[in-house]
Simulated scan of single mutants.
Amino acid sequence: MTEPRWLDQRENRAWRGYRRMRGLLDLQLARDLAADSGLSEPDYDVLSTLSETEGHRLRMIDLAGWLLWSKSRLSHHITRMEQRGLVRREESPGDGRGAVVALTPAGLDAIVAAAPGHVESVRRHLIDHLTEDELETLAAITTRVVAHLTAHADT
């Protein structure tokens, strides 16, 4: 068995700082979103994703994949959002087994109303604390790590 490649002090500080920042940032953004719009982060994720698609609809399986959710989690969440009138399920054209989730007019209104406050929260708690160079570095880091993880998603 090979020896573990332990993190050195600098690497450990970066890793732990990232984990702490991610947790605190996610918590603050969720609080702001709920206070400003009454939406949860999962609600916002579904609504914003659908709002950016052609026709404001997407196959359930594709939405689950994009959000990195299980089919079961998505199905349960969509049921709750349907009860609030934000989305609706439709039969998938040409595929009787699949389903499509579509944004309702109320769902579109909800995301249009929530987006400005959410973006302001992201700015206030992250973007405005970074220099232009730090922002470029963060974009480069996230792009590289996402590309690595996406390429190795099946392994």
Score class of each variant (00 low, 15 high):
Thr104Ile: 00
Ile78Phe: 11
Val87Glu: 03
Gln83Met: 08
Glu136Ile: 04
Leu135Ala: 12
His129Arg: 10
Glu90Phe: 04
Ser37Tyr: 02
Ser37Gln: 02
Asp8Arg: 00
Arg20Ala: 04
Met1Ile: 04
Leu63Phe: 03
Leu135His: 13
Leu33Ile: 00
Leu7Ala: 13
Glu82Asp: 05
Thr79Ala: 15
Ala113Leu: 04
Ser51Tyr: 05
Glu82Pro: 00
His76Tyr: 03
Tyr44Gln: 12
Glu54Met: 02
Glu132Met: 09
Leu138Gln: 06
Thr131Met: 02
Pro4Lys: 13
Ile61Trp: 02
Ala110Asn: 12
Gly96Ala: 12
Ala153Arg: 15
Arg80Thr: 14
Trp6Met: 14
Gly107Tyr: 01
Ala151Gln: 14
Gln28Arg: 15
Leu138Val: 07
Gly94Arg: 10
Val87Arg: 00
Ser75Pro: 02
Glu136Arg: 12
Glu91Asp: 11
Thr79Arg: 13
Ala34Asn: 08
Asp45Ile: 07
Leu7Thr: 00
Ser48Gln: 09
Thr79Phe: 07
Thr2His: 14
Arg84Gly: 02
Glu82Val: 02
Ala30His: 02
Ala153Tyr: 03
Arg80Gly: 08
Gly65Gln: 08
Leu50Trp: 06
Asp43Arg: 04
Leu7Asp: 12
Leu108Asp: 13
Gly38Asp: 05
Asp109His: 15
His152Leu: 06
Arg73Glu: 07
Glu54Leu: 05
Asp36Met: 08
Trp6Ser: 15
Asp32Phe: 04
Glu41Leu: 09
Gln83Lys: 15
Val146Trp: 10
Gly65Pro: 02
Glu54His: 09
Gly17Val: 01
His125Cys: 01
Gly23Glu: 09
His152Lys: 11
Ala30Ser: 12
Thr150Glu: 12
Leu130Ser: 10
Ile127Gly: 08
Asp109Glu: 13
Val100Phe: 03
Tyr44Cys: 08
Asp8Phe: 00
Tyr18Ile: 10
Glu41Arg: 13
Ser70Leu: 00
Ala153His: 11
Leu67Cys: 10
Trp6Glu: 14
Gly65Ile: 03
Arg88Tyr: 01
Thr131His: 06
Trp69Asp: 06
Arg31Glu: 05
Arg73Lys: 15
Tyr18Leu: 15
Gln9Asn: 09
Met81Asp: 00
Gly96Gln: 10
Leu68Tyr: 15
